[in-house]
Design a protein around this nucleic acid. Structure first.
Lengths: 184, 184
DNA sequence: TCTAACGTACCGTCCAGACGGTCGGTTAAG
DNA sequence: CTTAACCGACCGTCTGGACGGTACGTTAGA
């Protein structure tokens, strides 16, 4: 079979996907053995692509950020109107992401120092984007807090809220970007 | 010395506090041995109070919820005005809580099924309180999302934001409770 | 009031198992 | 032929928890 041959980048991607799956199924303390088995690779093969368990987790972190960034850019409106970036972030936050926004996965990522670095970079960029987005600071602050809250709720109360409630919250946030004055 | 004598509830509390400290200092995978040492107790003594590592973590979870509930009630305004409960939650969320809102502690608590139960109970009660709090649903939703976001930011971006920014956000949320009409 | 009996708090040791990572070897690709 | 991908056996370490024992507190009976 073609595609079953040796192919380093492909194997790497499969190991990452397997790691996410294994984390979800077996909790944040999965063994490298289990991940390797899930990926259809020996433990030695896994350690060839990721030299340590931490390196594997860093790989997950980078994939996660890349994925979110790509989502935001995909959801950007073509016209350059006030609140454009903010709306893209709102839509990206509400997009379903079954693989990454799972408690066990996040638990594994927390505590790895590289996560802090990437978060700092992301926070800086988000601030730059919203600062020049044309919204009142009060609105930008409130919306970004609420988006963080939606993310947290996704992690802790998975599926507790109905789809309608989610849509109501999303629409409310989107509407808050349609005016540029102070809130109170 | 009195007070150094045998005293089960006292030892229990000290073990819990030591567990939180050890988690913060040594990460989410602390050994029982380390916790026992931190508490000035033998490992056997620790396991006398908490029959397993999981039981110890459940103890932390219960203490955390009790502490938060007590804080909210302490911060309740005496007069029964609209938005009373919501304001108490806002103030409680912004109270510094060095011990519990630490990434390593939360990491350890995540994944323990008992946490989900307590979260469900808390979410239900919060909803009851805010439903009868006299605010417009849009306001209640937005505020509770933003509070979740503040909690998440405390965990992930500890100390990144200045005290002024925090106060601005808190004051904005408090002001949002002073009117009862729709937001948009 | 003394004391014997009992229950509870706490100690220190030990062990089976799991885990991360290393190493030499083997096979496919260029 | 050289290099990179991959295998699988192996090692040292660590950890949760079991267990047998000790010291202290308490209370009932005389």
């Amino acid at each position: 079979m073609p595609g079953e041959q040796r192919n380093a980048p492909r194997t790497r991607r499969e190991v990452l996907a397997a790691a996410a799956r294994a984390l979800i199924e077996q909790g944040p303390n999965v063994s490298l053995d289990a991940v390797a088995k899930e990926a259809g690779v020996s433990k030695g093969g896994l350690l060839h692509h990721f030299r340590s368990k931490q390196a594997l987790i860093v790989g997950l972190i980078e994939e996660w950020f890349d994925h979110y960034d790509a989502t935001v850019e995909r959801l950007l409106e073509p016209e350059d109107t006030p609140g454009r970036w903010t709306r893209a972030h709102i839509r990206a936050t509400f997009e379903p992401d079954d693989l990454w926004s799972h408690p066990s996965v996040v638990t594994a990522l927390l505590g790895v120092p590289e996560l802090q670095q990437r978060l700092d970079v992301a926070a800086t960029r988000w601030r730059q984007q919203t600062d020049s987005d044309g919204l009142h600071p009060q609105r930008a602050d409130l919306i970004s807090r609420a988006l963080d809250g939606v993310t947290l709720a996704d992690l802790l109360w998975r599926g507790q809220e109905s789809a309608e409630e989610r849509e109501h919250t999303r629409d409310l946030l989107l509407k808050l970007t349609e005016q540029t004055g102070p809130l109170v």
